[in-house]
């Protein structure tokens, strides 16, 4: 390992190669981030010159119940989306990794939602969820909504959004797990078979540990990604009923482009950026992902 490490270091290209990436990052992420941070200390309606107003926006955010409510809703969505999507994607992915023809055919059908745009998906679901003429009118009575009022009730709306998002994103994560499961050496399963391990035990003791890194990757994408869910919710429930599904990004959008309070929206944007960054760093740290230990050690 040491020898390989130093060889790697010696072969490292010069600092110049980093310039395009650094420029790209600087212009499209760094500068906007700094500008947003500056804007968060100003009052600006999009016209004329922003006027500095010190910590006003920040103290207003802290005392704004609507923002706290949206933060809570965002976190609820994050947790629910992870809980729903991870087991589904993991099981489907492992199943789809098999080489049989029926699996290949079915998998390619499962992956179809990947090809559709978010807006198209959300609009189709909105039509399905119409309580008088949509699918909601037909199946509502069987699932506790006699009048089809699914997106009009608090829990129904949350559930509907979680399901729509899962329908859209599970295929992507399935693809990740499928690829990873195919990388697991066959000899591990052969050895387990000889030891008399059942399918379920093989899954718990071989597949799951071998997929550790993929689980972390997929979880980071899901958790951080769920902080920015916006268009699905905007179209399916419009943040309703009342503000029961009003997530933080929609609150930011409304502050910026409906109320034209750019300074205030910038504070929410920074909170979102900080949350996303902190979350991904925490997951990477506590999952041991950063240590980059191979899953193939000892083989």
């Amino acid at each position: 390992m040491t020898a390989a490490g130093s060889a790697d270091r010696a072969a490292r290209p010069g600092a110049l190669w980093i310039v395009p990436a650094a420029l790209f990052f600087g212009v499209f992420a760094g500068v906007p981030l700094v500008l947003t941070a500056v804007l968060s200390f100003t009052s600006w309606n999009g016209l004329g010159t922003p006027a500095f107003n010190g910590l006003d926006n920040w103290s207003r955010v802290l005392s704004d119940d609507a923002v706290w409510e949206s933060l809570r809703i965002s976190l609820v969505f994050m947790v629910l989306c992870w809980l729903v999507q991870t087991p589904l994607a993991l099981l489907l992915g492992v199943w789809a990794a098999g080489r049989e023809l029926n699996r290949a055919v079915l998998s390619s059908i499962f992956f179809l939602p990947l090809l559709m745009s978010t807006a198209a998906i959300a609009i189709s679901w909105r039509v399905l969820l119409d309580p008088n003429f949509g699918l909601a009118a037909t199946i509502g009575p069987y699932i506790g909504f006699p009048d089809g009022n699914i997106v009009g009730s608090q829990h129904g709306a949350v559930a509907a959004v979680v399901i729509v998002i899962a329908w859209q994103f599970v295929p992507f994560h399935t693809l990740l797990y499928q690829g990873a499961a195919r990388q697991i050496p066959q000899m591990l399963y052969d050895a387990a078979l000889i030891d008399g391990a059942s399918r379920v035990r093989q899954f718990w003791h071989i597949t799951l540990p071998q997929l550790r890194h993929t689980i972390v990757t997929s979880s980071v994408l899901m958790l951080v990604g769920s902080l920015t869910y916006f268009e699905t919710i905007l179209i399916v429930t419009n943040g309703g009923p009342g503000s029961a599904t009003m997530v933080l990004p929609q609150r930011m959008y409304l502050s910026a482009f409906q109320s034209f309070q750019m300074g205030y929206a910038s504070v929410i944007a920074l909170v979102l950026a900080a949350l996303g960054t902190a979350l991904s760093l925490l997951i990477v740290r506590f999952s041991g992902f950063a240590k980059m230990r191979s899953t193939l050690e000892g083989i």
Binding site: P32, L33, L272, A273
Partner: peptide, 19 residues
């Protein structure tokens, strides 16, 4: 750095029109 870029991408959407 990459991950914080991913986080920042969220607000780039807000700041781009300002630019």
């Amino acid at each position: 750095t990459f991950l914080s870029a991913a986080g920042a991408a969220g607000i780039a959407g807000l700041a781009a029109p300002l630019l």
